[in-house]
Structures are given as structure tokens and as C-alpha cells.
């Protein structure tokens, strides 16, 4: 399955695909696909000001959620840059959206690290980290795949899902934005999400 297919269904059709073709694609060895029912769930994490941030704090406003890590030199900063540009383009509407960057590398991405890193992006973006178990819980519930891969020199990279999740104010999946999605499509999806 190619990326173009995902891009075409990414925003509009994620919910429509639930339980249909995508489900068949999942095998035991494949990373979990978010195109299944029941994305989301209860979580308790720590924000970049070291305050508790739970799934309850996400409700009441639509949300845009991205999972990544700061050691990522290309996909994550590019995505956060685009998210920042979308928020800027939304203007005052941006505050009606909860925008969240969740690390899947909590060992390195402390609350302080997240705060410093996110100071280079739109101030509306909230950084979330937690214990490895807390991150495992939200990743499982959002069907986010992540895996630690050692590299020479004692460091490691993280394989990880690159979707941006669009959630309604009631915590239901509204759609996904794929990596490389044109800004115009992403903006249309965000405006639709904000209209509710």
C-alpha cells in the first residue's frame, strides 16, 4: 500500500474506513494501524511545565496530536514546523484548538527538554511526556507504533507512526493528517474540525 492512498484517505476517510479494508491489512507483525475503531482513551502524562496533563484536559476543545521525539532530525521538526504554520494561519482560532506533541522517547525527552525544544515552535503547542508505562498506555490507545532501535556509538533512534491525530472536543477521532499532506488539505481538515 502506498503513501498516496493514505494521503487521499488520511483526512477525509479515516473514520469511514474503520472496520473495512484497513482492518484486513493488519497482521500480527505489522505496526498497529490507527484505521481501527476505538482510537483514544484515558491517559495521565506530564506537560512541559512539569504539571499533570490527563485525557480530561484534552476534552472540551478539538485537539491536534502528534507523536514524535526530539532526537528526530527531519520528520518531527518538519511536522512541528508545519503545525506551527497552520496554527499561525488559523490566527485567533488557533487557541480554540488543543495542540499537543507527545514524545514516544520519554527516556530522553524530559519535561524540561520538551519545553526547551518547543520554544522554537508555535507557543500553542503543549509538550507531553511521562514514564515509559504512561507513554506505552497512550501509544497503545492511539494505535501509535514506536520502537527503539540502537545505532552505533551507544545512541538510538525511534521508529514511530507519523500521523497527526485530529480529535473532536468529545475525544473521538475525526481524522488523520499524513506526513507530507499538502498544507491546503491540512488547513481544510483543521477548519472542518473547528466547525465541529
Amino acid at each position: 500500500m502506498n503513501r498516496r492512498f493514505f494521503m487521499s484517505v488520511g483526512v477525509a476517510g479515516a473514520a469511514a474506513l474503520v472496520g473495512i479494508g484497513e482492518y484486513l491489512m493488519i497482521t500480527q507483525n505489522a505496526p498497529p494501524s490507527p484505521f481501527t475503531s476505538g482510537v483514544g482513551g484515558a491517559f495521565s502524562l506530564v506537560d512541559d511545565n512539569s504539571k499533570r496533563f490527563t485525557s480530561r484536559d484534552l476534552l472540551g476543545k478539538p485537539a491536534m496530536i502528534y507523536f514524535g521525539y526530539t532526537f528526530c532530525p527531519e520528520v518531527c521538526p518538519t511536522t512541528l514546523t508545519h503545525m506551527s504554520a497552520w496554527l499561525h494561519a488559523l490566527g485567533p482560532e488557533a487557541t480554540k484548538l488543543r495542540t499537543v506533541f507527545v514524545t514516544i522517547d520519554p527516556a530522553r525527552d524530559t519535561a524540561a527538554k520538551m519545553k526547551e525544544y518547543l520554544s522554537g515552535f508555535d507557543p500553542n503547542i503543549i509538550g507531553l511526556t511521562g514514564t515509559p508505562a504512561e507513554i506505552a498506555t497512550i501509544a497503545r490507545d492511539y494505535k501509535v507504533y514506536y520502537k527503539k532501535v540502537p545505532i552505533p556509538g551507544g545512541s538510538y533512534t525511534m521508529d514511530h507512526s507519523s500521523f497527526i491525530y485530529l480529535m473532536t472536543a468529545k475525544g473521538k477521532l475525526d481524522g488523520l493528517i499524513s506526513y507530507g499532506e499538502p498544507d491546503t488539505k491540512a488547513m481544510a481538515a483543521l477548519r472542518r474540525l473547528l466547525r465541529g
Binding site: 521538526p77 518538519t78 511536522t79 514546523t81 508545519h82 506551527s84 504554520a85 497552520w86 496554527l87 499561525h88 494561519a89 520554544s119 522554537g120 515552535f121 508555535d122 507557543p123 506526513y179 507530507g180 499532506e181 499538502p182 498544507d183 491546503t184 491540512a186 488547513m187
Partner: peptide, 21 residues
């Protein structure tokens, strides 16, 4: 290579989708 996009506090970074929002 992406062009400068609005809303960036750290300078534009290239991405796959250089279209303007």
C-alpha cells in the same frame, strides 16, 4: 526545500509539503 512559512519562530524548515496554507 520548503519556503519560509508563517508562524515559525525558529525559521522555516523544509518539508514535503511546501504549499502555502
Amino acid at each position: 526545500a520548503g519556503g519560509a512559512m508563517p508562524g515559525m519562530t525558529m525559521g522555516a524548515m523544509p518539508g514535503k509539503a511546501p504549499a502555502k496554507p
